[in-house]
Design a binder for these strands. Structure first.
Lengths: 215, 215
DNA sequence: TATTTCAGTGGACATGTGTTCACCGAAACA
DNA sequence: TGTTTCGGTGAACACATGTCCACTGAAATA
């Protein structure tokens, strides 16, 4: 339980502020547990409002979960934007570096996505799947712009992108685990991540149109 | 709720039978939900015994969860054993084929592992992580036996194995989703899985001792 | 200024929960 | 045969939960 929401500003500002407080409080409680085990009353207690006030913002905890998906995905998107902007040298080293930075800065968001991706709340699972599909599509078009890959099918690009997204989420989980351990463990995780991505990249370099098939 | 447990046989046989019924009932309830949202009373209701009898078998629902991890991992192990035995031609096509068969035959086990791997129950997460680490080690030594990979570091083998385990679990989830859809969707998933594994394999073929580092 | 809108209140409800305890009856054992 | 072991019973408990309801008071609007 933390400080109450400030009581200044226009009405919709305050509403938005307690809404944000609900999302934040929920995220705090979700550090070590899952959305399915989170109760409406717990969240309101954490934020400092009465249970029924919850309904002024969300229809249910699942609904709050879907909102959390959107919020978390926004930081994920912001990450690839930063990556596209700042990475100049080796794409893999650069990408992993920004991944490390962003995961460290927004642990709860990344933890939420990885935990609830296959979690116990159907609506949230669907929301994450949809957003992740979109994310993989963007990555696929990004990959298509690389020098050696202009001749790739969009299907094949998509397959590679899916693989990379899956690998990235595994890496995220490793980073989250090694984050509250030694700095050496973190460095080791980074090394593993770079190797794994490089492995995939090497495979892509060797790809010959083996995957042709009827649609 | 299904039939009660039979009331014949020696005492420890019957005990083991209701224990198995508890595991089975839990697995049935976990088809669309997560362990964290599963209540002790629900499980006993499903099996047809009184709540307090639960404690004769498990100390808590988390404890039951850990037992489910062991059971599920047994079927996973049995899968790689079958794969090692039956696959003769192309390793990737063969492995994916047995994966498809086993996932279809033991959906609830695979769903449980993938869902609870990063789920909301700490003990279960730990148990799965431990078992999966072991699993990856075995895969690593298997990989080391392949013709072109005798010169690989055990560290590098481990990194590649971890990547493949992660990819495999992604594939498992796709299979579970496409399983209760059209046969065409299933076939498409198989195609994607084969491509992704082949991508990794190609990368491994190109690997040059880039990952040397102090231990 | 008078009226309406609406985020947050507080009490009440039926229901589900984990855990306790003394108890039963048949299998296991002496 | 007599005694012990022990998986399962059923009542009871203190508590947590989601949702209903009439309400308050200040900001928004007229």
């Amino acid at each position: 339980m933390t400080n109450m929401v400030e009581t200044v500003g226009t009405r919709q500002e305050r509403k938005q502020r307690t809404r944000a407080a609900l999302l934040d409080g929920a995220l705090r409680l979700l550090a070590e547990r899952s959305l399915a085990s989170l109760s409406l009353r717990e969240v309101t207690r954490e934020v400092g409002i009465v249970p029924t006030a919850f309904y002024r913002h969300f229809a249910s905890v699942s609904d709050l979960g879907v909102a959390l998906v959107e919020e978390s995905m926004r930081t994920l998107r912001q990450m690839i934007r930063e990556s596209r902007r700042t990475v100049t040298g080796d794409a893999i080293e650069g990408s992993v570096a920004t991944l490390v930075r962003q995961v460290h800065a927004h642990q709860s968001h990344f933890r939420f996505i990885t935990r609830e991706r296959y979690g116990g709340v159907a609506d949230v699972r669907r929301a994450i799947a949809t957003e992740l599909r979109l994310f993989a599509s963007e990555l696929a078009t990004d990959l298509g712009r690389f020098p050696g890959m202009a001749d790739w099918t969009s299907d094949d690009l998509r397959i590679a992108a899916d693989l990379m997204v899956g690998a990235m989420l595994s890496i995220v989980m490793s980073l989250l685990e090694s984050d509250h351990q030694s700095a050496q463990a973190q460095q080791e995780t980074v090394h593993v991540a770079e190797c794994q991505l490089r492995l995939i990249a090497l495979g892509m370099g060797q790809w010959r149109g083996k995957s042709t098939r009827q649609t």
